[in-house]
Write a protein that binds this DNA or RNA. Structure first.
Length: 406
RNA sequence: GGGAGAAUACCCAAGUGGCCAAAGGGGGCAGACUGUAAAUCUGUUGUCAGUGACUUCGGUGGUUCAAAUCCACCUUCUCCCA
């Protein structure tokens, strides 16, 4: 199976500008493609992960990836798919975030001579001269057309600043710049980037009279049509300090039945035959598929060792095993103890299991808090120093486990 | 530049002087049922202390015994006209 067919079979491709030509380019390994990442946070998340996987797949097929860090576009903020204005980031934060991105990416993509390269559009965008840009680039854009683009349409109601309107132009310029200076003939991105990508393609055509290509990746949605990789407390991060390997594992272990196969296909590197085999699985057997998904992804992101630890921790907690060494834990400072003991509510707030004491109170009242698998019945329940010395297993509801020790 | 309007808790959205910690929905959390799933049903959802206190309705001041609600100014956004 050719790489292009595989991408299609995995459901990764949303839109392409020219299927036949792209197919040939990619299959022959002749594409130099770029994907842009805006440094909006200090860690990559699951959404980025998909793009990285795609890069890896294409790299394995001989194509050359260009990672573009949006150190310059970060100054503007992409309005696509957003209903509110992005808050502006300071240069220091952008710089910091860019560096965090770079570190994380190095784990996935091979950089180096004739391999992937990484560029930062701050290097060329920040020095642009306004008048020059208007003449050289702005002249090629029709505001009428821009406003027709899907990404701006949604914002016509809520309002769109001139700053944000320029995001498209900056991104188009990026593509043009990379085309000219790095021979980059293709751009990939999330499906919400489609209009921006077409704009770049258009710019290249008008300025250089050359053809370039664009392709978007299907957004990872769950069966309800929401973006995946989001939890109530925010995104699922790739940084182990922001989302622990155990939580990461659990996130995937807990996806809806309806979404498992999709995730396996789009996110893992398992052979398609193997995944198709799982399609026959039904009911509780899907739990196995979820486990495979969780192990595969955790391995990719955090390494095999962490993945196994997470799996074992999950087994210990949910299948009655004994190994509880790998669950999330918090060390309690002895200064929090009074008379060598700590109240259970204070303890779980300290561990971050609940955000406030009121919430802790509620939890206990509703019978959702367990210490060493025994339900906590009273607000006065407390844990002694001796117990903490051995490590105390705390459970909130059915799925949240935490260990406190001293 | 002129005119009209909006800002409420995680989100959407009621509320136009005391009965407002603030309806309703979504989301979240917990319970039951399950397969660590979905759907469903129940409870809960500002903070701190056990039936009470404190802080909240864009910001700052003011009127009043009493303000999310009235007034002034500021900020941000939307719409109409130029």
């Amino acid at each position: 199976m050719t790489i292009y067919d595989e991408l299609v079979a995995r459901g990764l491709i949303a839109q392409v500008t020219d299927e036949e030509e792209i197919k040939e380019l990619v299959n022959k390994g002749e594409a130099t493609f770029y994907i842009g990442f805006d440094p909006t946070a200090d860690s990559l998340h699951v959404g980025h992960f998909m793009a990285l996987c795609l890069m890896k797949r294409l790299q394995m097929a001989g194509n050359k990836p260009v990672v573009l860090i949006g150190g310059g576009t970060g100054y503007i903020g992409d309005p696509s798919g957003r209903t509110d204005m992005r808050s502006m980031m300071t240069p220091e934060i952008i710089q910091h975030n860019s560096e965090c991105f770079k570190k994380q990416m190095e784990k996935f993509i091979e950089f180096g001579e004739n391999k992937a390269i990484m560029v930062n559009n701050a290097d060329w965008l920040l020095d642009l001269n306004y008048i020059e840009v208007l003449r050289e680039v702005g002249a090629h854009f029709s505001v009428n057309n821009m406003l027709r683009a899907e990404c701006y349409k949604q914002r016509m109601e809520k309002g769109l600043s001139f700053l944000e309107l320029n995001y498209m132009i900056m991104q188009a310029y990026d593509f043009y710049y990379l085309f000219k200076n790095h021979g980059c003939n293709m751009q990939f991105g999330g499906d919400d980037q489609w209009s921006n990508m077409l704009a770049g393609r258009e710019l290249i055509r008008r300025k250089l009279g050359e053809n370039s290509y664009a392709m978007t990746i299907t957004l990872l949605l769950n069966s309800e049509g929401n973006k995946m990789g989001k939890t109530a407390s925010g995104a699922v991060w790739l940084d182990p300090d922001k989302t622990s390997p155990f939580e990461f594992y659990q996130y995937w272990r807990n996806v809806d039945d309806a979404d498992v196969l999709n995730c396996l296909r789009m996110l893992t590197f398992l052979p398609l035959e193997q995944i198709n085999e799982m399609e026959k699985w039904e009911g509780s057997q899907l739990n196995e598929a979820k486990e495979i998904l969780a192990v595969e992804l955790t391995t990719l992101v955090h390494g095999q060792e962490e993945a196994q630890k997470a799996k074992q921790a999950a087994y210990a907690l949910f299948k009655g095993g004994t190994d509880d060494a790998n669950m999330p834990s918090t060390q309690i400072d002895s200064s929090l103890l009074t008379d060598d003991a700590i109240n259970i509510m204070d303890l779980i707030v300290e561990c971050g299991i609940v955000p406030s004491k009121s919430e802790a109170r509620r939890l206990i009242k509703q019978g959702g808090l367990f210490v060493e698998d025994a339900k906590v019945e009273s607000f006065d329940f407390s844990i002694t120093k001796a117990q903490l010395a051995d490590g105390v297993k705390i459970r909130k509801g059915k799925k949240t486990y935490h260990k406190a020790f001293i």
